[in-house]
Design a protein around this nucleic acid. Structure first.
Lengths: 168, 168
DNA sequence: CCTCTTTCGCAACCAGGTCGCAATTGGCTA
DNA sequence: TAGCCAATTGCGACCTGGTTGCGAAAGAGG
């Protein structure tokens, strides 16, 4: 195999500025509710609000974040209902969760899923384009027959600002 | 930048068969205890046994595994003591912990630390050589100024045997 | 508006750790 | 080899993040 210089980046990347309209990427709240109904599921206010919350922002949000937001309008929605619905929607393929280090999982629509680089020191989460993992994906497959899923668990490390600092 | 063929592995790897004598890689139990003493720390039986357990096998072991092993000889050693000593030894740099997916952390001597590829379905943990992450390390640094620490959190995905199976 | 399920709210529970505290013990000094 | 004092221990309570069993409530087709 032809080696390349060990410190040469293997791809280049320019941020994508072309997305003026966020959210509603591939399905709307009502579309998902229709899917749910088609499966014999019920459309409840808790579910509708949860989906609204998920569609209206693409940030990384924990179950507790979502619960807090929903409870502003509907204080009786219990956290366990949130968890059950998050599970259900994940089974449906509408959303996915990711682990950005220690602490709670974060949820987002599968249409906006991406990988993360998370700083162990300051906690910042960098959204990484999939190309960053191309090489690793190819190599893991070639050498171990392993198909990586880099979106589920973040890659930890040190961000630019923290990389010079003390290990603690 | 010169692109290479997208499906060409970027490195090759032959398993290293040359390690006949495992453990005691760079420090022995007594060496570590001496370090501890030099810092004003005390040498207790719990610590000695914990270190013995860590040095005698390089497998991935959880705090509970280690507690169980130690408690065979010294039943009164409490799990909280194990945790406290694991923390202390990690601060000393003697050992590190890693997260291989959901569930408890695993501990091992820092001298034998490595990265992992963990199957989300069957749970198998493949020990990955550091070269596997060279490309990702270079690219994350080049594009985001981010220094990856691939040993702390495993990369999840599907192993050879599970990659054809249903998503659940 | 009835009936059959699904879903909900709630409280209890679980895993994996962490912490405060009083009792114990290592290790130095005499 | 006894004494002293800080480091460490055992223990139980507590914490976060999440799951579960249960009876009550509420969708949705008839």
């Amino acid at each position: 195999m032809a080696d390349q210089h060990p410190d040469a980046p293997t791809w280049s990347y320019a941020p994508d500025m072309s997305q003026a309209a966020p959210a509603t990427s591939s399905a709307s709240v009502e579309t998902v509710l229709a899917q749910l109904r088609a499966r014999g599921g019920r459309v409840t206010t808790a579910r509708r609000r949860l989906l609204q919350a998920l569609f209206e922002s693409s940030e990384h949000r924990t179950a507790e974040d979502l619960a807090a937001e929903i409870q502003e309008l509907a204080p009786d929605v219990h956290i366990s209902t949130i968890y059950r619905n998050l599970d259900e929607l994940e089974r449906l393929g509408v959303l996915v969760h990711a682990h950005l280090g220690h602490g709670p999982a974060t949820y987002h629509l599968s249409s906006v899923a991406h990988s993360h680089l998370v700083c162990e020191r300051c906690g910042v989460a960098i959204e990484a384009p999939d190309e960053l993992f191309r090489g690793l994906a190819v190599d893991a497959q070639a050498h171990f027959g392993f198909t990586i899923d880099p979106r589920h668990f973040a890659v930890l490390g040190r961000c630019k600002d923290c990389s010079g600092d003390t290990p603690a």
